[in-house]
Simulated scan of single mutants.
Amino acid sequence: MNFKRFGRPAVIAIAAGLALSSCAANEGDVATTGDEASASTLTGTLNGAGSSAMDAAQQAWIAAFQIANNGVTINYEPSGSGGGREAFIAGGTDFAGSDSYLGDDELAGTFASCAPDTKAVDLPVYISPIAVIFNVEGVDELNIDADTLAKIFSGAITSWDDAAIVALNPDATLPAATINAVHRSDDSGTTKNFSDYLGQTAPSVWTEEASDTFPFDGEGAKGTSGVVDAVTNGTNMIGYADASQAGDLSTAKLMVGTDFVAYTPEAAAEVVAGSPLVADRAADDLALDLNRKTTNPAEYPLVLVSYAIVCNEYADAAQGELVKAYVEFISSAEGQAVAAENAGVAPMTSELEANVAAVLATVK
């Protein structure tokens, strides 16, 4: 993991002493299972909301955490990344799950659940490729490059037998049928990651700024499940969704360098491992500047990183301790294994786990 950022010695310094502190954290209440669950002294209710892409992982994490800590109840509403951040900022939840990190305008404001004069931080806890899903009559495999993908979703290419698609798929029988491209209708971090990828790799076509809001007309569907359902049940469809929820749908290969690359959790993790932190953020904020322009075929650049957005100091210290314990679990090796088994996502590297644990050690 490349964590180079000017002015970031604080994170490195904290992480340097992590060998003991992270082990101690993992040996506490959160790690208990089975008969040891009754030994947990944690009690209370946590409310979170946000990313629908990470909902499967959240439900698995919640189940495991509540078994180990049977005095704790956790609720998570997959309302979309934008909705999750809004709810957290307003004090309606204790944490947010978001496929995009807090914007400068959001950080400039106040956070109702946080102690006065303190802010929230972005902690990466979930890595997954975004799959380009499709359901096209007579087509089982699809190669696509960034320019063509951008033209499809911006409305510049409207037919499946367009010359640009045919050139990339000379062996496919592409129908002379209208392309039905489905995007997220709600504010979505998946959309922001998708548009960020297109903006960086097809800038002459996709001229809009990366945003949670899809910038063009077309068919919209709410949530990851809504996009998946629309593509599954429609005709000659294409969409984008967290790969862990693509199900049995066909998925396109993206051109990376000169190769067409299928998504894998491992290829998504490789991109994240080579990506630096976003410049000019607070020392305890771990927002990542993802390397979308890679030409390495071992990397899949259409990837999302979901963040747990938490206060660095909570107005209610008891809630802060609960949030801290839960996020320590989901970002630990044990929690990442739970997500990998139940949602098929890529576990974080040990270095990224260590950096998240270093920040959590300062949360109160």
Score class of each variant (00 low, 15 high):
F153H: 01
T73F: 00
I238H: 13
D284K: 00
A283C: 06
E77Y: 10
V30Y: 12
Q245F: 11
V132L: 12
F95E: 06
V227F: 14
F95V: 08
D99A: 14
D55T: 11
S188K: 00
A56W: 10
N169E: 08
D117G: 09
S128P: 02
D171E: 14
S250F: 11
L107Y: 03
S40K: 00
A279K: 09
A346H: 07
A96V: 04
G34S: 07
V121D: 01
L107W: 03
A87F: 06
P301T: 03
V11R: 07
G320M: 02
D229P: 02
S52E: 03
M255K: 14
S40W: 03
T295P: 05
D147Y: 03
P297Y: 05
T213G: 09
A131D: 15
T110P: 02
A361D: 10
V323C: 04
V305W: 05
I165N: 04
A90G: 07
T32I: 11
P297Q: 07
D229G: 08
R8G: 11
A279T: 12
L322T: 00
K4D: 14
V303T: 13
A252T: 07
G7F: 10
A31L: 14
S225Q: 10
G226D: 06
E137K: 08
A317I: 02
N169G: 02
Y300I: 05
E328C: 00
L18K: 13
E270P: 01
N312D: 15
V323T: 03
T178S: 15
S113M: 08
V11Y: 09
A317W: 08
E106M: 05
T148Q: 02
P203T: 05
P297L: 04
D284G: 08
S100V: 13
A282W: 09
A167H: 06
A268W: 05
N355G: 15
P215C: 10
A176Y: 09
D122L: 10
A202T: 12
V363K: 12
Q58N: 12
S51F: 07
D161V: 03
D316Q: 08
D35P: 13
E299W: 06
D217G: 15
D285T: 10
G50F: 04
E77G: 06
T191L: 06
W206H: 13
F65V: 03
F194V: 04
W160N: 11
R281V: 13
S350W: 04
N75I: 06
D35H: 13
V271F: 05
A267T: 04
T294I: 09
I127G: 04
D196N: 11
Y314D: 01
V139Q: 09
V205C: 08
D99V: 00
G218F: 07
A298P: 01
N143H: 14
D105T: 15
I127P: 00
V345G: 00
A24N: 15
A202V: 01
T158Y: 08
G97M: 14
N70K: 07
P265L: 09
P9H: 06
T251D: 05
D187H: 11
F65T: 10
N169P: 03
I127Q: 14
E266K: 07
S250H: 14
G80C: 00
Y314H: 03
M255Y: 06
A325Q: 01
K192P: 00
A317G: 04
G220C: 00
I179L: 03
G335I: 09
E208G: 10
T178C: 00
D248E: 13
A19H: 13
D285V: 15
A164D: 15
N312W: 01
R292W: 08
T33F: 14
